[in-house]
Simulated assay, not measured.
Amino acid sequence: MNGQLRGKTAIVTGAASGIGRATAALFAARGAAVLAVDRDEKGLLELRDEVAAAGDELAVLAVDLTSAGAAERVFDHCAEVVGTPDVLANIAGRAGDRPAADTTDEDFEFFLRTNLGTTFALSRRAVIAFGDAGGAIVNTSSTFALTGVAGSAPYSAAKGAVSSLTRQMAAEYGRRGIRVNAVAPGLIETPATRAKIAAGVFDDLVTRSRPLPRVGQPIDVARVVAFLASDEAAFVTGLTIPVDGGWSSTHFRG
């Protein structure tokens, strides 16, 4: 698998921590030329050093993806320092727990902007950059987009829209050789979830109710993203693939 992505040039967002960090490092290890993007410059520099220590390399760009013109800046920088991209991994996003009645207009706009808006803007720019040469986009949805979970209305709605966008763009650009898929992570141990996992907050809702009871790790998702970005998935498009230990598709008793 070491050369799975050799010859690919990839943009990975949300790369300073969690799933994005694991994805950027794995892409580099598997041979891709990588531009790692995040607003956390310190985290990006730490990632670059970590990847270099493993004998690989990647370029980094610190930018707030919700800012005006961010997508154009990302793709222009990639072309300048890494090369014209043919893979986009949209990992950046924000989670949060809010029931619909407690969601303000500002809350709703925030979740749409950080999860759907950035994905749309970068994906729109990607199909322009890919041209007629083809390419692959891998988005990040959520298991909360696949099944109803109380208390997460704006986040679930935004991630559901990401899955819908994934299908739509697969239909629109497949004839140009552009594949568009998504991963739907379940409970994954990241800096954002680690404290709650340690406190047992998710034990009943998630961990004990799925057939694979361990907590997911960022690398579990990154490996699926790498597959979808690679030529091994050359006949796969328009799908949202759960990476959740079976939580969204099964009910476990025991």
Rank of each mutant, 00 (worst) to 15 (best):
Glu106Met: 00
Phe111Asn: 12
Cys78Tyr: 12
Ala157Trp: 05
Leu65Asn: 05
Asp132Asn: 12
Ala157Gly: 08
Gly160Pro: 02
Asp76Glu: 15
Ala158Tyr: 03
Ile178Tyr: 04
Asp105Arg: 04
Ala101Tyr: 02
Pro99Gln: 08
Gly135Lys: 07
Phe110Lys: 01
Ala150Leu: 11
Gly177Cys: 10
Phe108Gly: 00
Gly131Phe: 09
Gly151Tyr: 06
Asn90His: 10
Gly174Thr: 04
Val87His: 13
Val74Ser: 08
Thr66His: 08
Tyr173Arg: 06
Arg125Val: 01
Thr114Trp: 05
Glu80Asn: 13
Glu172Cys: 00
Leu122Trp: 05
Arg176Tyr: 02
Ala100Leu: 12
Ser152Glu: 07
Ser152Ala: 14
Asn181Gln: 06
Tyr173Ser: 03
Glu80Arg: 15
Val149Lys: 01
Arg73Asp: 10
Val149Gln: 09
Glu109Met: 00
Ala150Met: 14
Ile137Thr: 03
Gly151Asp: 12
Thr147Trp: 07
Ile128Gly: 01
Arg124Trp: 01
Phe111Cys: 10
Pro99Tyr: 03
Val127Glu: 01
Ala89Ser: 07
Arg179Trp: 03
Leu146Phe: 05
Ala79Asp: 15
Ala79Glu: 15
Ala133Phe: 05
Ala89Lys: 03
Phe75Trp: 11
Lys159Phe: 01
Gly135Pro: 10
Asn90Thr: 02
Cys78Gly: 13
Gly93Leu: 07
Thr119Leu: 04
Asn181Tyr: 05
Thr114Asn: 12
Phe130Met: 06
Arg176Thr: 02
Gly117Glu: 03
Ala68Asp: 13
Thr66Ser: 12
Ala182His: 11
Ile178Trp: 03
Ala150Cys: 11
Ala95Lys: 07
Val138Asp: 11
Ala150Ile: 04
Ala171Ser: 13
Ala129Thr: 11
Arg73Phe: 06
Leu112Arg: 03
Arg167Trp: 05
Phe144Trp: 12
Gly160Ile: 00
Ala92Leu: 07
Ser67Ala: 15
Gly134Cys: 11
Asp102Gly: 11
Ala170Tyr: 02
Pro154Met: 06
Met169Arg: 00
Ala79Ile: 05
Ser141Pro: 13
Ser152Val: 12
Ser123Asn: 06
Gly160Trp: 02
Arg125His: 09
Val82Cys: 12
Pro154Glu: 07
Gly160Lys: 07
Gly83Leu: 01
Arg124Glu: 13
Ala157Thr: 14
Ser142Gln: 11
Ala126Asn: 06
Gly83His: 09
Ile91Phe: 05
Asp102Cys: 07
Ala71Gln: 10
Ala170Glu: 09
Lys159Asp: 02
Asn181Ala: 04
Val74His: 06
Ser156Gln: 08
Gly96Val: 01
Asp132Gly: 11
Ala79Tyr: 04
Ala126Phe: 09
Ala184Trp: 10
